[in-house]
Design a protein around this nucleic acid. Structure first.
Lengths: 343, 343
DNA sequence: TTGTACGCGTTATCAA
DNA sequence: TTGATAACGCGTACAA
């Protein structure tokens, strides 16, 4: 067992120079009250001795860790990783570090991770909720103690705090209207978990577009799932196997849209987009790799991440955390590609 | 400005019950020396008062944070996110928390993140190196103080520590041999940064397979890049635009292979796999979404992550960290799909 | 410009 | 079975 934990502290550096620990502490952070030559001397010695600051001790003393926690469902979704990149960019620019964990859409994991973030006293938190989550008590420690908490994308309106979202209703309305304008008559929907506000809004937008164009919504054309690729496949199998079949589908994400397309691809009586239209959501990279290329909705994921981080940081540093929580809504674009071009 | 930082401590709980803080501390962690009824009483009061442990203070005192840091290039690569899932699974099972950051393949970011992990005294570290990294001094604090450090996938042999890798030479050899057996005569290679051992080994395996089959390697058939989709496209443009053209390519990852295929797709004189073969590496989900489906190499990413975490955890808890660093090599499989089926 | 003394919240040690 | 005390490493009010 070798020498473990023989970390060098400011005391060691102070001792080596016959000055006080206070002087070392101040010199290392360029405090104005320390002389130029002393600073130089201290920094040189600290480097020579291999001193590394202990953020744990500093955090305990200052009650500030210079970290923000990010909890997402899964990091391997293109939308999420862009969101995270946006968060990191802003946070790092402000000398904050970002720690990421994933809930894998499990409520239990979400609760545990949030607790770990609180126990480690991150200065702020950005969350995209798990599919499963229906209770929100685990955010109480953050709320009670006024730690900045921002929800992004997968939000809940049961907690009063800042939210970063896109206009899911309007996006779904646009997507569905586009299919109608292309001449599709009976449009189905691959829907997500309805306790997630965003998926409910996508369903609502879809329904509203149908009604606006005089089409009667049919519950039998809607397939609810976790929107995985497999579930897209399953949805296609079910919807296209019924007697009342859709001739187009609006999927609540690209992943399930691709699964849907793959099932349809192997049926001889379907050809996308000629007698079957597909629109997805997210503009994931696969949407332009799949053939035919997938029409989809683009969000400004990176911008949303940046905004979320900005919100957290201003709340941390400012004294603005008495202000009323705000919801920031970003716009989306419909990206028309081959999969919906009937005309 | 509301009440911030009014966190409840074990002293508050102790005071409310007229016991000592020591008793509270012990009761909460089920120390054997505390009576059953006292434990019950303390836990109940802690819950009622909304006490939450402060991991910062505990970490300072115990010199142990129960966290492990993971540094990767980018979280949005399927291989990486599977690796992380494996790490998380093992870590969480052992009550450890995993904090993830990404270097975005920048040396500076890697240095900064490693420093932040050290400053926050993570108990162990798992790293997949940035493409750019050529110096390794930033790992010194971990090495000097015997903190467990494991490299995974993108490793360096300039540091003596544990490594988790796949046999890149053998995998590349298999992939290239397969193309030769399918009847392709002039095989190119999309290569990665050669300071990363893994990419060098893939190039070596490719070269060795050619030589073994009596084919003279040609430097003009090798395109070096960061292996992005765009660079795959650029590589195709260059290689297929030369007078000496390849009739097949082995790409060091799937992303660049897809870019390559997309460029070739729009050339009328090429048809994959009939007069142009393609093999990728990683078995990313896109490899079975792209058409024709991509032949590729599968790694056990999740298993590699699990093993990395196990290694770190045994080193943390055990006293085995005097033992000699080990390199664990995982096997790969060639997954034959349409893109290389000339026969 | 520099130093002394204390506290952040927890836990290890020693004593009762 | 419980308690008093010190210490983890740092930052800050106060003093010099």
């Amino acid at each position: 067992m070798k020498n473990r934990n023989k970390n060098i502290t400011i005391y060691d550096v102070a001792h080596a120079l016959s000055v006080s620990a206070t002087t070392v502490s101040r010199a290392l952070k360029d405090h104005h009250s320390i002389g130029k030559d002393t600073k130089k001397k201290v920094k040189k010695m600290a480097l020579a001795m291999g001193y590394e600051p202990n953020a744990i001790a500093s955090g305990l003393r200052k009650k500030k860790t210079h970290t923000i926690g990010v909890l997402v469902s899964q990091i391997n979704r293109p939308f999420i990783s862009s969101l995270i990149s946006g968060i990191e960019e802003v946070a790092n620019k402000n000398k904050y570090h970002v720690f990421i964990t994933q809930s894998h859409d499990s409520y239990e994991k979400e609760v545990e991770d949030i607790k770990a973030f609180y126990n480690n006293r991150v200065d702020g938190l950005i969350v995209s909720l798990a599919m499963e989550t229906k209770k929100y008590d685990h955010f109480l420690p953050f709320l009670k103690n006024n730690y900045p908490l921002v929800f992004a994308d997968r939000v809940t309106y049961e907690i009063e705090t800042d939210k970063i979202v896109v206009d899911n209703f309007e996006a779904a309305f646009k997507a569905t209207s586009h299919l109608i304008q292309q001449g599709y008559k009976r449009i189905g929907h691959l829907a997500g978990a309805q306790q997630r506000h965003m998926y409910k809004k996508r369903l609502d937008g879809y329904t509203a577009a149908l009604i606006k164009h005089g089409i009667q919504p049919e519950e039998s054309l809607i397939y609810y799932s976790n929107l995985s690729q497999q579930e897209g496949w399953n949805g296609a199998k079910l919807l296209l196997g019924q007697t009342v079949k859709p001739d187009a589908v609006f999927a609540a994400n690209d992943t399930s849209a691709v699964g849907f397309m793959q099932y349809a691809e192997q049926l001889t009586n379907y050809s996308i987009p000629h007698n079957l239209g597909v629109v997805g959501f997210n503009n994931d990279p696969i949407s332009s790799i799949v053939r035919p290329k997938l029409t989809t909705i683009n969000h400004p994921a990176m911008e949303m991440g940046k905004k979320a981080a900005e919100l957290v940081l201003t709340k941390i540093s400012g004294n603005s955390y008495t202000t009323i929580p705000q919801t920031i809504t970003f716009n989306t674009d419909l990206i028309i590609r081959e999969s919906s071009m009937k005309k």
